[in-house]
Design a protein around this nucleic acid. Structure first.
Lengths: 232, 232
DNA sequence: TACAAATTGTGACATTTATCATGTTATTAA
DNA sequence: TTAATAACATGATAAATGTCACAATTTGTA
């Protein structure tokens, strides 16, 4: 989607910039880069933690399962994003699953080396700390929304959040190819309910659909639905 | 409730042990200790971040508001726990509120000093990172539960979680004095619904009530309701 | 290409959960 | 102590959301 060059690798990842300069050679020696197909699961909840991943190109979803055919998408990781870091700390098992939404190239650093890096490179640790703080804020915001905000508002927020994360194509559609089921899992509701809410949003001229592509027509009204002005 | 002595202060806080030894004098010079009354709000969502807090004695709830008379309790902080650290990072505003559930003594370290400490003391930063990772895991677990688990299961899980956090009195009741409204806010449902679920649990002999005290009679069955064996 | 499988669209219906109303019982403050 | 206020209890009802069933369409693949 971008200009065909790797704008992100572990070494150039936004998180690591400035912090891993002197670490580059060591990282390169410890990383493994490989491709995953669309739909392929990289690791599952309960799998023993083996390493931390970076998205080189493509996109993956981080999710938690419920009941075999229900899930909640916790976040997406795009080019330049870290994932699998929830495997840090106690337990030794990933608490979430990760699967590719597109053909994706990931790069992998084994956990022992990653933790060793953290212990030594305090600038990096500090940046990771800030990153986790932001994730925690997002997560708790979403928690409250799941508890109290109606599905329509959650769909509105999910759409805005997707646009913020993935941007838009030249003709104004959100620049990600997501199944309706995944959209529902991201909003934390069933496919059918989300489908109805999308219809309502279309009737209210807040969004516009073309195939599975979605275009936001009235961001302000959508934000009002999400009842929160200060956000992302 | 404990034996009348301060078993935790910033200097002896579980988080800081081993990491802040050499930092003690500086911390002492920068901390302020004060009392808050039951029900008193320490800071609110949207307040500018001024510092990080530790619970010296007592208990506080960390929550997010919705709609003036609804809220979701995100976590509790007891003796020895840190709170207000969601104020770290971008924004400069607390994303959550904190209020005392009991007469509580908190101790406060201003944010600039705290951040300076983080930048210098990498052992402490590392431990805080691990702490945040655990919080994130908890948070995402709860997120999924709010999205998919029925209220009854959430109540069951909330009760088990409370018992794990606060322990039991000699006669077996969960050692915290929480209003039913707060319990509902913790489970992420309305007072009335939680009330009904509690009645069901009583009828099923899974719990036992005495005033506002709650005793778990069948932890295993409650865990089954929460449909997750691997947990806290 | 052609078939199977997955995804999407849509209505009818069931269930869960929230809302409202109202009475009762504690707690707090004067 | 008493009045006032907040917390608790509980049923009736409404609204939101999920479940089920099934057709249409798209996608992946043999």
């Amino acid at each position: 989607m971008k200009k065909g060059q790797n704008i992100c690798d572990v070494e150039s990842c936004f998180l690591c910039k400035n912090s891993l300069e002197e670490w580059k050679p060591a990282i390169s020696a410890h990383k493994t880069t490989y491709k995953v197909k669309k739909g392929e699961v990289i690791f599952k909840e309960g799998d023993p933690v083996t390493g931390i991943y970076f998205v080189n190109s493509g996109c993956i979803k981080v999710y938690k399962k419920w009941d075999k055919d229900k899930e909640l998408i916790v976040r997406f990781a795009r080019e330049g994003s870290l994932f699998g870091h929830r495997g840090l700390g106690k337990g030794g098992f990933y608490p979430i699953s990760a699967a590719a939404l597109q053909p994706t190239v990931v790069c992998y650093v084994d956990i022992a080396f990653f933790e060793a890096t953290l212990k030594v490179n305090s600038g990096f640790t500090y940046q990771l700390l800030m990153f986790l703080t932001e994730e925690l804020k997002q997560s708790e915001r979403k928690m409250r929304n799941l508890a109290h905000m109606p599905v329509k508002g959650r769909v509105a927020e999910a759409l805005i959040s997707l646009q913020n994360q993935f941007g838009i194509t030249p003709d104004g559609f959100i620049n990600i190819d997501l199944s309706r089921q995944d959209l529902a899992s991201y909003a934390g509701a069933t496919y059918e309910t989300v489908f109805r809410m999308m219809n309502e949003l279309v009737n209210e001229k807040l969004i516009d659909l073309s195939g599975k592509s979605i275009r936001l027509l009235n961001r302000d009204e959508l934000l009002k639905l999400a009842q929160d002005i200060v956000f992302l």
